[in-house]
């Protein structure tokens, strides 16, 4: 099992008030799943993504990534897991403005201490994968929104992560461009990647082959889509709500 959450809670303390962002989430995700997380605003989608992405640790409960308990890791150990296992794609792209697309994509390789000579080769191959070889030496402000998101996806892919996490990746794009980006994710999924994506849009979620709905920090439904061109996937994997 790639990802296993059991009774994960996340409580934020704001002053004296406690916000139950996650109220006990149990969830298993296998390799090469394509999962969409939906739910109303404030239901805990981003919080769940942050926990899965090792940006945050649960207040209680257990989160095992590749059979390793993440809850007791320190900052730097979490950073190393993010570096090796996680690729983030954000709604607002979050590219570094002073760097070229190439340099943005290369950055995770620098943090994962890849050798300089192998880096360029790797960057070009993911740039090809997202179809942006020609734009590699442009800065983000010289790229369209769709192109920026492709750069961000390339950056997320560069370290061959186990999971690609995308929090509303089409939120800042028009529907046409959004659809193009979804095609990219589709391709990545077919190539064997595990993708978890948060969205508000049903038609975006339909690309996935499993949809989880959150409500007030709890999973209210977990359904496998039979439709679409999703590849066959193992059924009967342990899932709890």
């Amino acid at each position: 099992m790639l990802i296993q959450l059991e009774g994960v809670t996340k409580i934020y303390e704001v002053g004296t008030e406690k916000v139950n962002a996650l109220g006990g989430v149990s969830l298993s995700i296998e390799k090469n799943e394509y999962l969409a997380i939906m739910g109303p605003s404030g239901s805990g989608k981003s919080t769940l993504m942050n926990v899965i992405g090792c940006l945050d640790t649960p207040t209680s409960g257990s989160y095992r990534l590749k059979d390793q308990e993440v809850g007791d890791l320190d900052d730097d150990e979490l950073a190393e897991i993010r570096s090796a296992e996680i690729g983030f794609v954000f709604q607002t792209f979050n590219l570094l403005p002073r760097m070229t697309a190439f340099q943005n994509v290369e950055l995770p390789l620098i943090y994962s201490k890849a050798h300089r000579r192998t880096r360029a080769e790797r960057v070009w191959s993911v740039m090809d994968a997202v179809g942006l070889r020609e734009r590699a030496l442009h800065r983000p402000n010289e790229l369209s929104g769709g192109q920026r998101q492709r750069v961000a996806i390339a950056r997320a892919l560069i370290n061959n992560p186990s999971i690609i996490l995308a929090d509303e990746p089409t939120g800042n794009l028009d529907s046409g461009t959004g659809e193009e980006i979804m095609q990219v994710f589709e391709g990545l999924h077919r190539a064997g990647n595990t993708i978890i994506l948060v969205t508000h849009e049903e038609y975006i979620a339909e690309h996935a082959n499993r949809i989880i709905r959150l409500h007030d920090g709890l999973i209210s439904s977990d359904e496998r889509a039979a439709r679409g061109a999703s590849p066959t996937r193992p059924v009967g994997s342990a899932e709890r709500t």
Binding site: G53, L55, D75, D76, A79, E80, R82, S83, A84, F88, N94, L95, L96, L107, P108, Y111, S112, R155, N159
Partner: peptide, 16 residues
């Protein structure tokens, strides 16, 4: 701050 957040998200450790 945001840049720092991005760098951390993509694998930068504290010391980096």
């Amino acid at each position: 701050t945001r840049e720092i957040g991005v760098r951390k998200a993509i694998g930068a450790r504290r010391r980096d």
